[in-house]
Design a protein around this nucleic acid. Structure first.
Lengths: 334, 334
DNA sequence: TCATAAAATGTAATCCATTACATTTTGGGT
DNA sequence: ACCCAAAATGTAATGGATTACATTTTATGA
């Protein structure tokens, strides 16, 4: 494989000039440039990218830390990230943590060792402190989880008010006993959705009963199981807010298994609007998250940090939307 | 940031010894090793990975080329790949082509330029010739698509016989008019599944009618649309083999929209066994692909190539399994 | 104790592009 | 024709780990 010296020799110039032809062609005289380009072509020269990375201490690579890829929502965000990354000549490294904190730390090490130019964290259970410090020293964006007071840039939705909108929809339909199946409550995002649920009830002077709050794990099975608990209650809820669509589907399955109908007997509203929500029967009424947009925005923010540009705004909150389908029935429910 | 020379100086040894302590500790005398380790600790030294990559011409990174990540089946395969890669100290770079051939070629360039140590191709529409040549010169594994006569290693299922099993299931249930909604026929995988369909019919001396063959695009909508065509037929099929689960769901939706029931009026068998197939109603009878296992095996094969170990076997065919659920009815259908 | 093989360590070249700084060339103005 | 600033090009150091080869140290056996 020919290197820069070979090209320089053949073109009868110095390596500096060859390098310039590649990096800043406009600084080289037309005639010289042609000569060099011809030599490059003749030798079929390709710059050694690894040498370049080494010399420049940059890799044009960013890492996306994600708890699990097989999860409906993350691939969509990654798609958005990938889109912007590609446009800017960046590559995307996959950082699957599989929920193991050790893995997360090893990815952080990679960032510190400059193996990647930046990092996007998709909903993590990392220590608040660690993310903050990391964000002070390296390009980092936290996506989908907004943590109060965090100094690192974040891209998220307003989980509190989105959840409130979901529950309000239920209340408007006339429901008085509304249960919630939350996500894991060690994640701020889950706590925020619970908070939104509380706010919606309190606004209408409806008391918050702890029996109507069940903690799930975002899985289909947990939705199913927690719904069963509700159904076993003396006065079981007539409507459920599930903190994500997958749990909503599990809950609906449980309702059906119990011989009841959705939405006629129990209304269910979900959260996320994953692809399958429209296909599911009954089609889910849910809060749509702009996943792709979140991915794009995150990458844009990261890029700015990498380039050293100042961020006008650190906390980016994107809009969600209530998608009304079938699982809560129509406005004129009886 | 301290470098190896600093460590060597502090420990009063040469850089070679420091390097050895890091790479092959057993070749360094205990006493020296301790001394070096102490210096490393004291200086908080971390080797410059980029320098190492440059010097060694290896990146401990592999690229997974995938048409689209937001697709149910790919994330699972990637998960398998990632699992094995991580165990072996390799990182996974995402190569989303978005169906654009140009992108595919740019990823191939990265491989040639040694930016990655190897590449796994997940169902691609790349030219047969190109893959073969690439496989001759670089570590490459082609996954999920098996191309006859290809010299590059492949990990796949037997699409022909798996499809045959699916269709046979339908025939066993007594169906005589079986339609197929294929995938895009420019992909070998799709042609193979069609071939399996043909074989199953011919084995029972049932003629293959071209009106019963519709080409889809693997999307839900295409399943819906192609099913509508079947339903518009004078003698519409009583059973459908959809070449993937997503299309099967679309087809079922179309059947329902037409006022018919699945499986009572029309039986539908899918292919893939994506996560949602069990949740869908009716739950899909389908051919399960061992996605995670395929990912793992692919990475193992790639690793062997990277290490320069010979491959005993080049074509790896993994087993599929017919999962009987609800969408075809029970064995005792009337 | 000494010779010798084996083990441990050191020396220094190497990988290749980049870039600060130095030098040469060019072109415009008088 | 000559000067000078600007443009173009060249020189050579630099980044940091790796490793072939050379040298020194250690251990073994007679």
């Amino acid at each position: 494989m020919a290197n820069m010296i070979d090209v320089a020799r053949l073109a009868n110039v110095s390596t500096a000039t060859v390098s310039r032809v590649i990096q800043n062609p406009e600084t080289v005289k037309e005639k010289t440039r042609t000569k060099v380009l011809k030599a490059i072509d003749e030798l079929n020269y390709q710059p050694n990218i690894l040498a370049r990375y080494f010399r420049r201490t940059e890799t044009k690579t960013i890492l996306v830390m994600v708890p699990s890829i097989a999860n409906n929502v993350f691939p969509q965000m990654i798609e958005g990230i990938d889109l912007v990354a590609n446009q800017s000549g960046y590559k995307v490294l996959l950082g699957n943590t599989n929920q193991e904190p050790d893995k997360a730390y090893s990815y952080i090490e990679e960032l510190k060792q400059k193996q990647v130019d930046g990092m996007i964290l998709l909903t993590t259970r990392l220590d608040y402190q660690i993310i903050s410090e990391l964000g002070d020293d390296y390009p980092v964006v936290l996506t989908s989880d907004y943590i109060e007071g965090l100094t690192a840039p974040t891209v998220a939705i307003d989980n509190i008010s989105s959840a409130r909108v979901a529950v309000e929809h239920l209340l408007q339909l006339g429901h008085q006993r509304v249960g919630i199946i939350t996500g894991p409550l060690d994640i701020p995002l889950s706590r925020d959705r619970l908070k939104g649920y509380r706010q919606a009830l309190l606004e209408r002077d409806i008391g918050v009963e702890s029996v109507l709050i069940q903690e799930g794990s975002h899985s289909y099975e947990s939705g199913y199981n927690q719904m069963q608990k509700f159904l076993a209650l003396d006065k079981s809820p007539t409507a459920i807010f599930a903190a994500n669509d997958t749990m909503a589907m599990g809950a609906i399955k449980a309702v059906k298994a119990h011989g009841l109908r959705v939405p006629e007997d129990v209304a269910v509203v979900g959260f996320d609007n994953i692809q399958f929500s429209a296909i599911f029967e009954p089609a889910l009424t849910t809060i749509a998250q702009p996943f792709i947009e979140m991915g794009k925005r995150s990458m844009e923010l990261l890029l700015k940090q990498i380039k050293g540009e100042p961020l006008e705004k650190k906390q980016h909150v994107l809009d969600t939307k209530l998608i009304i389908r079938e699982s809560c029935g129509s406005q004129n429910q009886d």
